[in-house]
Simulated assay, not measured.
Amino acid sequence: MYHTLAQAEEKLARFADGGACDVRAAINDALEQLANIEAWRCLRRIVRLTVEHDVLPLPQNIDALLRVSVSGKPSHVFGTDYQFLQNGPGDLDSELNADGVGFSDYGAGHCTMFDIVPDDPAVPVMFAGSQSDVAKAATIHGLDASGQSTTLTVPLRKWAGSPGVADFDPAAVTGVRLKQIDGVVLPSGLRGYATLYGSGASAVRFLAKYHPDVIVPEFRRYRVNWTVDSTEPVSVLAEVRLRFLPLVAATDIVPFDSLAAVQFMMQAVKEINAGNLQAGMAFQTLAVARLEERESAQTTAQGIKVENVLHDLSMGAATGLATYNL
């Protein structure tokens, strides 16, 4: 059974030093550790994406593509080495090379979902999702229009009209125009999401939406390995792995359906932080075992599980092992 953050705080408070420390922070620490131990099935989702350009950015809460079907047919997800294989397609941006297939990982660590258009340098403009965040400031590192490294302090604005409607006048926006953003540092203590736009000479473009508790945000991107016609978007069915993001609102849902596993992980983190590694690892083992039991029960309920061993373990699929869970 799944629980909200408020329910988890009530039930697990006594395991966070008897409630003396920040219960929410203790729960989030335990959830993050637990999420990174294994590729849990409860952190996978089936989603449908639309590809219109040669780069596919993932939102902040999605960590990776696992499997894809392009235009109704199964395709491939390759690792970052795809364009460097001796018998591979080579540089897909070169006009000398033919199209590839599927997607290749461009890696995580991108500080925005979308880049600023190179020939339209833009002033970064950030909006606050909560009124209490207005006037707080983010730090943005990048290159200005002349290619010089620069660091900007960008205050958070309030939305004009209803939230989500950035109906401001681009001509009234002044500041240093950037042609590239290399890093974003959000202010601590945000109460709501922050949204970044680039106000260029020709258009205002959405760049990213940021979780309030992730100070140094990152996004993963994929290279689309075939030539994309922007007038004919391609439908992609994908299995994705979710990235754990801290729970903030009382109604946020704990991603694991076993509070016992979260409890054991909270105890593990507490013991490890106190230097009791043996006790901490014992609690961690209990947490993992409890979740594995839940995963096993869910897999059994799904019926027969089919694995394509001939493909998944072949050399042809080997380059995708970094992002494809076997």
Rank of each mutant, 00 (worst) to 15 (best):
F206Q: 03
D213N: 07
Y197D: 00
L143P: 01
I181L: 12
S188V: 09
V101W: 05
G109S: 11
T174N: 15
N97G: 14
I181A: 03
G164P: 04
Y193F: 15
D144P: 05
D115C: 10
A138S: 07
A98F: 14
A172H: 09
T112M: 12
C111G: 10
L186C: 02
V123E: 13
Y210P: 01
D144T: 05
P163L: 08
Q180C: 08
D169M: 09
S199T: 06
N225S: 04
G102A: 09
G192F: 05
G164S: 02
D167H: 09
T231P: 02
P212R: 06
S132G: 10
E95A: 12
P121F: 02
Q148V: 13
G164V: 08
C111E: 09
H141W: 12
L152I: 06
P163S: 05
S199F: 01
S188N: 11
A171F: 10
F219M: 06
D182Q: 06
V214G: 05
V184W: 08
P155N: 09
S188A: 14
A145V: 14
S94D: 10
T139K: 10
T174S: 15
R157E: 15
P118H: 12
A108L: 07
F114Q: 03
V101T: 12
T151N: 01
G200A: 06
